[in-house]
Simulated assay, not measured.
Amino acid sequence: MSPSRAPRRRRSTRGRAILLTAVTAAGALTLTSCGDSGGSKAAKSSGGGYVTGASGVSTVARGERTEAPKLDGETVDGKTLDTSTLKGKVVVLNVWGSWCPPCRAEAPNFAKVSKELADAGKDVAFVGINTRDNSKQAAIAFEQNFGITYPSLYDPDGKLMLRFPKGTLNAQSIPSTIIVDKEGRIAARTLVAVSEEQLRKMIDPVLAEQ
């Protein structure tokens, strides 16, 4: 009896190991982006002059940047916002949804960095783009839970994302972050969740430009 059972135990162990590896890989992807493989496709799309570094952040040389679109409309808290009034500042645009686990993972980084830059008097404005939330209540609760104090445009249907130049954003890649320079041009982007260090590395070089 014992010899016949041993092979079955080994097969079972191998099966559990394979399953654990698959689950771990799937979990890593989930924490990176709420979208599907579209994020990687967008990162490789032509146009925009993007150069992607090892960290997954894409930057654009100053002479090759394209104009960021005007984003305007109602905010999550019922006010109105027009990003064209922010020209002259570095603008950090973050696409997020309260339903998205990676958005929740990166939210404390945005809350911390935005507050510290504001306290330091830096010419940086943070603007969220809340998408695919069916009610403002969920979005408001998200902002309150994570201490987000900057405004977020309410874009449940993703229409504002369609205003960006082709190849800049992917509707399936949420969260995404865009850095707009002081002249209103797209300087950097990432189509996955970012750490505090990555976020600062996206903002600081653009903020330092003269």
Score class of each variant (00 low, 15 high):
Leu162Gly: 10
Phe146Lys: 02
Val180Thr: 05
Gln172Lys: 10
Gly158Cys: 07
Arg185Glu: 04
Gly147Cys: 04
Asn145Asp: 15
Ser173Asp: 05
Asn170Leu: 02
Arg163Ala: 13
Leu169Val: 14
Pro156Val: 07
Gly147Arg: 00
Met161Ala: 13
Asn170Tyr: 14
Ser176Glu: 08
Arg163Ile: 06
Glu183Asp: 15
Ile174Trp: 05
Phe146Asn: 13
Gly184Glu: 02
Asp155Val: 07
Ile179Thr: 03
Ile179Phe: 06
Val180Phe: 03
Leu162Cys: 02
Pro165Arg: 05
Pro165Trp: 04
Pro156Ile: 07
Leu169Lys: 05
Ile174Ala: 06
Gly184Trp: 01
Asn170Lys: 10
Lys159Trp: 10
Ile174Met: 06
Thr149Leu: 05
Gly158His: 08
Pro151Gln: 13
Gly167Ile: 10
Lys159His: 14
Met161Gly: 15
Gly184Gln: 03
Phe164Glu: 00
Arg163Asn: 15
Gly184Ala: 06
Thr168Gly: 08
Lys166Gly: 05
Gly184Arg: 00
Thr177Trp: 06
Lys182Asp: 07
Lys182Asn: 03
Arg163Trp: 00
Glu183Pro: 01
Leu160Val: 09
Leu160Ile: 12
Ala171Ile: 14
Arg185Cys: 01
Ile178Trp: 02
Gln172Thr: 13
Ile186Pro: 02
Gln172Trp: 06
Gln172Tyr: 10
Gly184Ser: 04
Arg163Gln: 13
Asp181Ala: 04
Lys182Cys: 04
Leu169Thr: 03
Gly158Glu: 07
Ser176Lys: 01
Ile179Asp: 02
Val180His: 05
Ile179Ser: 08
Ile179His: 05
Ile148Ser: 04
Phe164Lys: 01
Ile148His: 01
Phe164Gly: 01
Thr177Arg: 06
Leu169Ile: 14
Gly147Pro: 07
Tyr154Arg: 09
Ile174Arg: 02
Leu160Gln: 12
Pro151Gly: 14
Phe146Met: 11
Pro165Ser: 08
Ala171Met: 11
Tyr154Phe: 15
Phe164Asn: 05
Ile178Ala: 03
Thr177Gln: 02
Gly184Val: 01
Ser176Ala: 15
Tyr150Ile: 02
Arg185Met: 05
Ala171Val: 14
Gly184Thr: 04
Phe146Thr: 09
Glu183Phe: 02
Asn170Arg: 05
Arg185Phe: 09
Pro151Met: 13
Tyr154Cys: 10
Phe146Trp: 12
Leu153Lys: 07
Asp181Asn: 13
Leu162Ser: 14
Asn145Gln: 15
Phe146Gln: 09
Pro151Lys: 10
Pro175Lys: 07
Phe146Ala: 06
Thr149Lys: 15
Val180Met: 11
Asp155Leu: 11
Arg163Glu: 13
Leu153Glu: 13
Ile186Arg: 01
Thr149His: 12
Asp157Arg: 14
Ser173Ala: 15
Leu162Asp: 14
Asp157Leu: 09
Asn170Trp: 09
Pro156Asn: 12
Lys182Trp: 00
Pro156Thr: 09
Asp155Phe: 07
Lys182Leu: 03
Asp181His: 01
Gln172Met: 11
Glu183Thr: 10
Ile179Pro: 00
Arg163Met: 04
Asn170Glu: 10
